[in-house]
Computed example of a mutant assay.
Amino acid sequence: MRGVGILAVAGLATGFGPVVPELLDRGPSTVARDTDAPSAAPSGEPAPDAPADALPGRDAPSPSTTPAEEPEAEPAPRPRRVPATGSGVFRVALAAEAPADADLTYTVEVEEGVPFSPRATARTVDRVLGDPRGWRTTAGLELRRTGEASDFRVLVATPATTDLLCAPLATNGEVSCRNGDLVVLNAKRWALGVPDYRGHLRQYRTYLVNHEVGHRLGYGHVECSAPGSPAPVMQQQTYGLDGCTRNAWPTT
Rank of each mutant, 00 (worst) to 15 (best):
A10D: 02
A10S: 10
A10F: 01
A13H: 01
T14W: 07
G17A: 14
P21M: 00
G27Y: 08
S39H: 08
P42M: 12
E45I: 05
E45D: 14
A50S: 14
P51F: 12
P51L: 11
D53E: 15
L55T: 02
G57S: 05
R58H: 15
P63H: 15
S64F: 02
T65P: 05
T66N: 13
E72I: 03
R80L: 13
G86A: 03
G88E: 09
G88C: 06
F90W: 11
R91L: 14
V92G: 01
A98P: 10
P99W: 01
D101V: 09
D103A: 12
D103I: 06
T105D: 00
V108N: 00
E109P: 03
R127V: 02
V128R: 00
P132F: 01
P132E: 14
R136N: 06
T158R: 11
P159Y: 06
A160T: 13
L165T: 10
P168D: 09
A170H: 14
T171M: 10
E174C: 12
N179W: 12
V183A: 02
V183Q: 09
A187S: 03
W190P: 01
A191Q: 08
V194M: 07
R198G: 07
L201H: 01
Y204P: 01
Y204W: 12
R205D: 08
Y207R: 06
L208N: 13
N210G: 00
H211R: 11
V213Y: 15
G214K: 10
L217D: 04
V222F: 06
V222P: 02
C224K: 04
P227G: 06
P227Q: 06
A231G: 03
M234L: 15
Q237G: 12
L241S: 11
P250R: 04
